[in-house]
Design a protein around this nucleic acid. Structure first.
Length: 276
DNA sequence: ACAATATCCTGCGAGC
DNA sequence: TGCTCGCAGGATATTG
């Protein structure tokens, strides 16, 4: 789950549960709460009102009316469902929140990698998000700043984009897609990319992320929006999971390879390895 | 500074 | 058919 999927969920959460009071909390799997015991967590958030909901990087941040912040990271397979019907039959339930209007928020997570943290008013959000880079879609980095940080890094451009210290929100899907649009070979060192390619990549990242939000994210297996619906961006993907299929530009077959333990997808013709 | 690896988990599909 | 293996959109810690 990457920035567009998290943003889609946050947008829907704002429309459905912002301003509501949490009337009942059921912790099915205490493992998902990292900051408190099950009992502490329940007593801390019960009867609180959710006054604000934001996205920071890939984190979902709720502000409660007592000044505490509830921070949720969905990682790979975390899901939030809002409904007025009981969803206790769902698999892999982590916790269930019931609101004063009858709404129910059910959190499920197949891999149990997702995390919930509760921070009190004295504990800054920075405790969780420290060391994270700027957010492209919030306008926190300009094109020239982007070019500067690329010039300083010897990392491969693919792992640079996935590294949340440099830039937040990009995951493997959108890294591969943006590199294809910008015609950059994923193994290129960031510092070897020329000015035009860097500008092209900056624009491609912005385009891919904002298009993916427009289509409510990409669903390959587990991602669902707040109402259980799949995203639609998977039908617009250019290279990701298209290995063996023809490149949309030149018909040469898309190649799949492994880099730092992650899959890379690229066109060997359009994305040439210029470094040799 | 960067690469490689392990780890938290489970289900699914490919290939034998 | 039934098994084993590798794979998955993320983040972090450790070791080299």
């Amino acid at each position: 789950m990457e920035l567009p999927e998290v943003q889609t969920i946050v947008n829907d959460l704002c429309r459905t549960i912002q301003g509501l009071q949490i009337k009942h909390v059921e912790v099915v799997n205490p493992q998902c709460i990292k900051s408190h015991s099950k009992e502490e967590f329940i007593s801390q958030i019960q009867n609180k009102v959710i006054t604000d909901i934001q996205r920071y990087a890939k984190f979902i941040v709720w502000t409660l009316n007592d000044g505490q912040s509830l921070i949720i990271h969905l990682r790979m397979t975390g899901q939030l469902y809002y409904s007025t019907e009981d969803k206790t039959a769902f698999s892999y339930i982590g916790l269930i929140l019931r609101f004063q209007n009858g709404g129910i928020l059910t959190y499920c997570d197949k891999l149990r990698w997702g995390r919930w943290h509760l921070l009190n008013a004295n504990n800054s959000i920075d405790n969780i998000t420290s060391g994270l880079g700027p957010d492209l879609l919030r306008g926190e980095i300009t094109e020239s700043q982007f070019c500067e940080i690329l010039a300083k890094s010897k990392e491969s451009i693919h792992s640079f984009l996935l590294n949340q210290k440099h830039l937040v929100g990009i995951g493997n899907i959108y890294a591969n897609e943006a590199l294809f649009i910008a015609k950059i070979y994923p193994r290129c060192r960031a510092c070897t990319i020329n000015k035009d390619e860097k500008k092209h990549l900056f624009n491609a990242l912005n385009k891919v992320l904002s298009d993916a939000i427009k289509y409510r994210g990409t669903t390959f297996s587990d991602y669902r929006d707040l109402f259980g619906e799949k995203g639609h961006y998977q039908q617009y993907l250019r290279v990701f999971k298209r290995s063996g299929k023809p490149c949309l530009n030149c018909r040469v077959l898309i190649q799949r390879d492994k880099l730092h333990g992650r899959s890379i997808f690229f066109c060997p013709n359009c994305q040439r390895d210029i470094s040799g």
